[in-house]
Write a protein that binds this DNA or RNA. Structure first.
Lengths: 218, 218
DNA sequence: AGACTGCTGTTACCGCAGGTAACAAGCACG
DNA sequence: CGTGCTTGTTACCTGCGGTAACAGCAGTCT
């Protein structure tokens, strides 16, 4: 033995480190080639061959999940920071959070596409996952759940508020996602404008606007 | 010649009919096997072999697009009907539209998953499609654009209203989609409840709710 | 009549992806 | 020393999307 630690611990530590290296290599490839990066390409980037990848991550879905978890955690952390930043009122917090998300997907669209378009689900046959498997859920669902808890914690919604909060969490995240996806492709306006319009929507401007002349009431 | 029609017209007609049959076979397979239905399986279901499929649809994306267009058209038609149905006010129209969408995805989840998770984009290198290619755009984007035009037509949004309408169109569609996707999996409440909560969200209840005691302002 | 066209359909193949044996080498333990 | 565990390899399998190349069968033109 080389140190006071046992061989097991030592191996486990180097394995963890190796795993991190592999994930970083995979990250580079995904950043370069987009979501359809092949296992061969990732292995080559890491300087090894396929079977090692499979030993570490099981299958492609496992690698995807591990990679997604890193980015999702990072994104969630920055979103939480925006949500907790000092702000005068709720609207400013919402604007800051939307802007943070949009800035993130604007800065690294390849990563974003990889996270949002998994291109395979693969999980079809698990029955007893009574832990709801949140940690491996796709990004959108996880964001929705997180936002739901934040809303339930901070907003007084009366009886049945938890259910409302969950619906709103997923709904708002979906709104953010779809609008961001569309905006990222067409770039129809500045980011600040998009944030403003979305917040207006969430603030009920749709219900306040007048009908157009000669049009039914929508 | 058999009839007064030329051979060309005759062939074209039967080709169209064949195409319809193939699409229906593909529909059956997708309904049974989900979005990862293989071209072989579809060809077998249609009683033919692969190359015929490729002659008719070019590649898998072409078949996907043709299939998606049918369902998207149908869904859009029913959504438009809900949007145009007689209703007292705008809120009731919105509720009817949301409910129609959710009922559709509830009735045929396999089709829904096929439409929403294309599992490949494939279009990367086209520059001169200045027609914006709306008719072949993925379902979400198309729904967003359609809703945007409806909003712009019917709601008075002042200067810059078109931009606002587009943002809202895509945002609302995304909200509907994400909430529906989550609801379809977890079934946390009845459909009517979901519709109610989402409409509340769009009607600005988030801005009206009080902060919870001891919590920051979100 | 026979050559030509245009469609339908087939078999057989290519390339590439994900995924998996089976086996070799290094290193710490008893 | 052999045993156990890990890292790494080569070589392969399966199945997919996609494509020749060829065969038959209408109807049309000269």
């Amino acid at each position: 033995m080389r140190t006071g630690t046992s061989q097991r611990d030592d191996q486990r530590q180097t394995a963890q480190q190796r795993r991190k290296e592999l994930l970083e290599a995979a990250d580079r490839v995904v950043l370069r080639d987009g979501p359809e990066a092949s296992m061969n390409a990732i292995a080559a980037e890491a300087g090894i061959t396929k079977p090692i990848l499979y030993r570490h991550f099981g299958d492609k879905g496992g690698l995807y999940r591990a990679l997604a978890k890193r980015h999702t955690d990072a994104l969630l952390a920055s979103l939480r920071a925006a949500l907790d930043a000092p702000a005068a009122d709720r609207r400013q917090r919402v604007e800051a959070t939307l802007d943070t998300y949009l800035a993130a997907i604007e800065a690294r669209p390849q990563v974003y596409r990889f996270l949002m378009h998994p291109a395979d689900n693969g999980q079809q046959e698990q029955e007893q996952n009574f832990d709801v498997g949140h940690h491996s859920a796709p990004l959108l669902r996880r964001l929705g759940e997180e936002l739901a808890t934040v809303i339930a914690e901070r907003v007084e919604l009366g009886p049945g508020g938890d259910e409302v909060a969950r619906v709103w969490g997923h709904g708002i995240v979906g709104m953010m996602h779809a609008a961001g996806d569309w905006w990222l492709r067409d770039r129809p306006c500045a980011r600040a404008q998009l944030v403003h319009h979305l917040t207006d929507l969430l603030w009920g401007r749709l219900s306040l606007a007048e009908d157009r002349v000669g049009a039914p009431g929508f």
